[in-house]
Simulated scan of single mutants.
Amino acid sequence: MRNGTVCSLRGVGYTYPGALAPALTEFTLDVSSGAWIALLGSNGSGKSTCARMLNALLIPTQGSCVVLGYDTSHSGTAFEVRRRVAMVFQNPENQIVAATVEEDVAFGPENLGLESSEIQERVEWALGVTGLSEMRKRPSYALSGGQKQRLALAGALALRPLCLVLDEATSMLDPQGRRDLMRVLRELHAQGMTIVSITHNLEEILFCTEACILAEGRLAWKGTPMDLLESSGGSHSLEVSPFLELWRRLKREHFLGATIFPEPKSIAEALCRFA
């Protein structure tokens, strides 16, 4: 699915009960089909609130949120929205509900009331995509942190969503677990999956099509990942990795493009080279 709009937020405002300030204020964002959008910003900037709007877990107190034609403020639309937009949270323990890997992946499709053959087909596909096929009978509690996160992803994918929203899904993973999850996400996006990912790690936006920075509940910056990575990012308090800072210094000193450091085709290639 590469045409059209999956989610549209218009002038969205939201204030949590008892909060002194709104989490989102006059927030507007369109998520196009087939896009991979990175949402960045400091803690409390409104990223997670925005993500929960896309899945109808939160309803705007101001403005509108329309997901695949469903206005989330209308009663009875939440179920339809969540069938089409799946979320993966920071802590996979919050999403694992069954004793074994296979049973956990089947949980969502079973709740949709699908036929047994359809459930089995979806489970097989989700396990295969996430690399968990050989662990299907393993107790879910016996998995490593990275494997649990992939299991949470498999459970979301078994719903066959049109859009996948990840709320800092890599923050609790070690480097290998993060690489494994990013590999799966790249493959899904290449197949047409629309993805919205919240992250503090700039290296994770390398394969995104668009980057958005939130600040105090507002959209503070929007552009391509390349534009963001080549800028300082300091005004938005974004964490810059040593490899990214090295790439920037080499570029500033005009080493990139010389014989010893030929200009890479992309920032991703540069970071991989220096990593």
Rank of each mutant, 00 (worst) to 15 (best):
V66H: 02
L40W: 13
D167C: 05
G177W: 15
W247F: 11
L250I: 02
L173V: 06
S231Y: 07
S45R: 07
I260S: 15
E239L: 14
E118F: 00
E93C: 03
L181A: 00
N111R: 12
S75T: 09
W125L: 10
L9Q: 04
Q149T: 05
E134L: 05
F255Q: 13
S197Y: 01
T209H: 14
D104L: 02
G44A: 12
G128R: 00
H200R: 06
R179K: 15
T259K: 09
A78G: 00
L159R: 08
Q191W: 10
L206P: 07
F261V: 07
F207T: 07
V12L: 04
L219K: 13
Q149I: 04
T25S: 14
E245Y: 07
K265T: 14
T170I: 03
A19D: 12
V129T: 11
L256P: 09
L206D: 05
L68N: 04
G217I: 01
G233Q: 11
V81S: 01
S140R: 13
L229N: 09
L181K: 03
E168C: 07
G11N: 11
D71I: 01
R83C: 12
I195Q: 02
L9K: 05
A99L: 11
A275N: 10
L185S: 04
A21R: 15
N111H: 14
T49S: 11
P60M: 08
V88D: 05
L181E: 01
P17D: 12
E210F: 01
P22I: 06
V105Y: 09
G34S: 13
E115R: 13
K222Y: 00
F107Q: 03
C272F: 11
H74I: 10
I195D: 04
S73M: 08
G44K: 14
Q120N: 14
L151N: 06
G146A: 09
G113T: 08
N201H: 15
V240C: 03
T199F: 09
L24H: 06
S241F: 11
N91D: 15
L157F: 08
S144A: 07
E239Y: 13
H254K: 12
S73N: 08
Q149V: 01
F79E: 10
R218C: 10
Q149E: 10
G46V: 09
V97C: 09
G223K: 08
L173F: 12
L132Y: 07
L256K: 11
F27M: 13
R138Q: 14
A275T: 06
V184R: 03
L219P: 01
A23I: 08
A270Q: 08
Q62S: 12
A35P: 05
D167V: 02
G192S: 07
G146Q: 14
L29Y: 05
L153R: 06
L112S: 12
